[in-house]
């Protein structure tokens, strides 16, 4: 299964970036092989509006089924939900530990956004 995780760097030792739409990178990790595919989110980071929407579309394009992040806003959540991607919020620590905790079943999936939209 492919897991998308927002990250401050490009490998498994990087910290989870608490922001979704404006994360530095989004790592798409294969939960079995731990292969990492890097989405450089630089363009969205400085987006005028709709960063979460674009990031969600990118995660969907990579075929991820799960997203682990800190905060996910309403427009991003709506897009992820439409793409059938499950979201676990309030995730912190390194990307590697997040993957391990996910595999151990420690996260619960959200049914709604956990932060306000930004205007």
């Amino acid at each position: 299964m492919k897991i998308a995780i927002t990250a401050t760097g490009t490998d498994l030792s990087a910290d989870v970036d608490p922001r979704f739409g404006r994360a530095s990178y989004i790592l798409v990790v294969d939960s079995e092989t731990l292969d990492v595919e890097v989405i450089d989110n630089a363009a969205n980071k400085d987006a005028f509006k709709g960063a979460g929407i674009q990031a969600a579309a990118a995660v969907s394009e990579k075929g991820a089924q799960v997203l682990l992040t800190g905060f996910c806003g309403p427009n991003a959540f709506k897009t992820l939900d439409a793409a059938n991607i499950k979201v676990a919020n309030d995730v912190s620590g390194t990307v590697q530990s997040a993957v391990e905790r996910f595999k151990a079943g420690e996260y619960t999936f959200s049914s709604a956004a956990n932060t306000e939209g930004h205007w």
């Binding site: 005028f48 709709g50 929407i53 969600a56 579309a57 793409a83």
Partner: peptide
């Protein structure tokens, strides 16, 4: 459609399209 929209009002995912009228 997603690429032409300056205001990110359209999200094309792997199997559906979501629009954001307020944007």
């Amino acid at each position: 459609c997603m690429d032409i929209c300056r205001f990110n009002a359209i999200a094309v995912t792997a199997n559906t399209v979501v629009t954001f009228p307020e944007l």
